[in-house]
């Protein structure tokens, strides 16, 4: 199948800073592709080049078989783009905003109005259709943004950070909507995000994008497998009666590389905060990283030292870990403008 979006050796530089570095990517029709990366990785720049809004320094971006740099208008007819932090004319109603977009796409006014109403209903904004956008909540704007993208009947929709700043329920609804669109109408969806779980939920394939380079592409299984070949085992234990002797004993177990206290919410990754035990609670959480599966030995060592074991769980690789792994040490850069 002919790819809908094909990027070849795409490069964009801002002065000395390379925002996008020799990017190759192809997206197949009908799939939902997640472009995953930290802030300032070059996601938005890449998207702008796909739409011909920014000229690449070298390489080509082909969308729907059209060179986006040479013929941006043709690309923009067929691609719907929702920028991050999408803006509307605040003193106009949601309906008016949609009709305006439709008319810019040469849709006659009558048809535009019908389509706009239909889409507003679909994204659940029919009650607010005649309200001024200034009074919309963040989630409503985002849904209006989706309607705005769809009104031109695009073949491809590109959503830049579509879930930014909306509440979890709103995110869920939006994602369900996006997936329905892709499944039922065969739309190709490219969405960029740094929210892993959301991407995980609906994307067919994911590309991990760091500092202008695509460092891994594939579905979740593929990415996990890529990691696991060189991976090690991670076990978390909740236990009471933590002591330095126990720590020494755990470290003496064969293939154990690292033992450390951690917060049970796993926000901090590998680094152990010193005050974890002082923070109170009945037990502390210990994270053990080892080269082989040593879970039974861990359990017996803990019990042998007279500590009580409340929980023991192996840590599996999710997109979180993949993300963390790839982005480790890479400080997020400010966006360049």
């Amino acid at each position: 199948m002919e790819p809908v979006i094909e990027l070849a050796q795409l490069t964009k530089k801002y002065g000395d800073f390379t925002a996008v570095n020799k990017l190759d990517l192809s997206i197949r029709p009908g799939e939902i592709f997640g472009l995953l990366g930290p802030n300032g990785a070059g996601k938005t720049t890449t998207i702008l080049m796909m739409l011909g809004l920014t000229e690449p320094d070298s390489g080509t971006a082909t969308v729907c078989g059209v060179d986006a740099t040479r013929n941006p208008i043709q690309v923009k007819r067929r691609v719907g783009y929702m920028p991050d932090d999408v803006g509307f004319y605040e003193d106009r109603s949601g309906l008016d905003n949609l009709i305006y977009t439709a008319r810019l796409n040469l849709i006659p006014e009558k048809e535009a109005r019908e389509r706009a109403l239909e889409l507003l209903k679909r994204v659940g904004l029919e009650a607010a259709a005649h309200k001024k956008v200034g009074a919309y909540s963040r989630g409503m704007r985002q849904r209006l943004g989706l309607a705005d993208v769809l009104i031109k009947k695009p073949e491809v929709i590109i959503l830049d950070e579509p879930t930014l700043g909306i509440d979890p329920e709103g995110v869920r609804e939006l994602l369900v909507l996006i997936r329905d669109l892709s499944r039922n109408e065969g739309l190709t969806v490219l969405l960029s995000s740094h929210h892993l779980h959301q991407v995980q939920q609906i994307c067919d394939r994911v590309g991990i994008f760091v500092r202008g380079q695509l460092i891994a592409v594939g579905d979740l299984d593929e990415l996990t497998r890529q990691l696991e070949t060189k991976a090690n085992y991670k076990v978390e234990m909740d236990l009471a009666g933590w002591s330095p002797e126990l720590e020494e004993a755990l470290k003496r177990i064969d293939t154990v590389m690292e033992v450390g206290l951690t917060e049970s919410d796993a926000l901090t990754g590998g680094a152990a905060p010193a005050n974890a035990s002082a923070a109170g609670g009945k037990y502390v959480t210990v994270r053990v990283i080892s080269g082989s599966d040593v879970t039974p030995q861990l359990a017996s060592t803990v019990v042998g030292h007279g500590a009580s074991l409340y929980g023991l769980r192996p840590v599996r690789y999710g997109l979180d870990d993949i993300y963390h792994r790839y982005f480790e040490g890479g400080e997020s850069r400010e966006r360049v403008d």
């Binding site: 739409l51 809004l53 208008i73 043709q74 923009k76 007819r77 691609v79 719907g80 783009y81 929702m82 920028p83 932090d85 999408v86 803006g87 509307f88 004319y89 605040e90 977009t101 810019l104 796409n105 040469l106 943004g145 705005d148 031109k152």
Partner: peptide, 14 residues
Amino acid sequence: NKGTLSRLMSQPIY
């Protein structure tokens, strides 16, 4: 500043 420019520019207009 309102963010409408980028939305507008992604429409097929010159």
